[in-house]
Each structure stands twice: as C-alpha cells, then as structure tokens.
Amino acid sequence: MSNLFPKSANKLPLQILIFIGLTTGIVLAGVTYYATPKYTRVGYAPTQPVPFSHALHAGQLGMDCRYCHSNVEKSGHSNVPTAQTCMNCHNQIKTDSPLLAPVRESYASGNPVPWLRLHQAPDYVYFNHSVHVARGVSCVSCHGQINEMDVVHHAKPLSMGWCLECHRDPAKFVRDPKLVTNLDWKHPGGDAGQLEQGKKFVHDWNIQPPQSCSGCHR
C-alpha cells in the first residue's frame, strides 16, 4: 500500500540492487585476492631451531647450493642436509656456539634437527627437482633470492597457475645448467637475450613441460 510505502520507497529496490551488486563484487574480488597461495603462503618465514643464515653461507661465503642440498641434481627430492654436513665445517669453526647446540646434539644422537619446512608441494602434486635442475631451471626461479635471505621466507606462491607460467613458456626461464645455482645471474642480453637463448635450449633439449593434468597429478 502506498500509505505503507512512502514515496522514497520507490528508490529502495534500485538501492538494494546496487548494494547487492557491490557486495558480490567485493566478495568475489576478495576471494580472488586473498584465497590464493600468493596471499596465504608468500612471506611465510618461521623461526628455525638454528638461526641458519643463507645470506651468510650462500651469499657472503659463496657456498654452492649443492654442497648442502646435495641430491638436488640426482633425485626427485631435494634433501635438507644432515648434521654431518654442517659438522664438516662446524667441527672446526664456532664449535662451541650455543646457537649450534641442536646441530651437535643431532650429530651425537643421530636424530635430525627439527627444521621447519617452508616449500611444500601438496601430496597430490608430483614434483621432481632433478628434472628441473638438469634442464636449466635455476633455484632462484622457485625459491627466490635465497642467497640474500638471513631468514628464509616463502618467496613465490608455488600455486598451480604459477607453475604453469613456466610450463607454458619455459623459454623465459631456462638457462645453462651450469648457471642454475648462480642466483645472481641474469642474462647479459636482458629479457630479449634470455628469450632467444631460452628458445634455443627449449629446442635443443626438446623441453616439453607437461600441461595436462596427469603431468603433475599422477
């Protein structure tokens, strides 16, 4: 009844419509932005049992990644070093540092140091490190500038869409396998040079990264 609905009520439906439209838009935009690995995982940097600095070891001291993560070229799984690896040096240097106590303990007992794992592909994803490294995908592509991190943080989203960026166009990323652990290396020719050389690698090594579901979800 008009007695019930004042004249201003005629505007109400439009207002409601606009309100619903805006709300839906905001919710969808929110989900698109926040409910993604890019938001939920990037930047994750837990405190490790030993304050190991990659910036010091890999950056300043220039140790090769493969000194510690020794299986990365040969195995699907890239290993975290055992205490033995640490003790190779630390039985001579900083032997008494209280910060290294967990390492010495592990060395003595044989129980691993309880490192916290950052980069973890879900169980339903098959990922093989050796294949990627052998075909010139640098560590930096997935893990970021580890050699500059005092505390390692999750640098890339590792979402499926992110994987596909490279699987669809590997030429933008592959480099000479000798250079994979050189995290500071950039193609001297810039993006154009990278693309040109990348295309050649892709062709020569017959790189055909799978894009089908079963490529990764086996």
Binding site: M1, S2, N3, F5, P6, K7, S8, A9, N10, L12, P13
Partner: peptide, 14 residues
C-alpha cells in the same frame, strides 16, 4: 516497476 508508491495504490478502492 518496482514502484511501491503509486497514486492508484493510495486509493481506498484498491
């Protein structure tokens, strides 16, 4: 429509 307010709706007749 929607037009909740209208002279016709105001009438007692309706």
């Amino acid at each position: 429509l929607p037009q909740h307010y209208h002279p016709v709706l105001k009438s007692k007749e309706i």
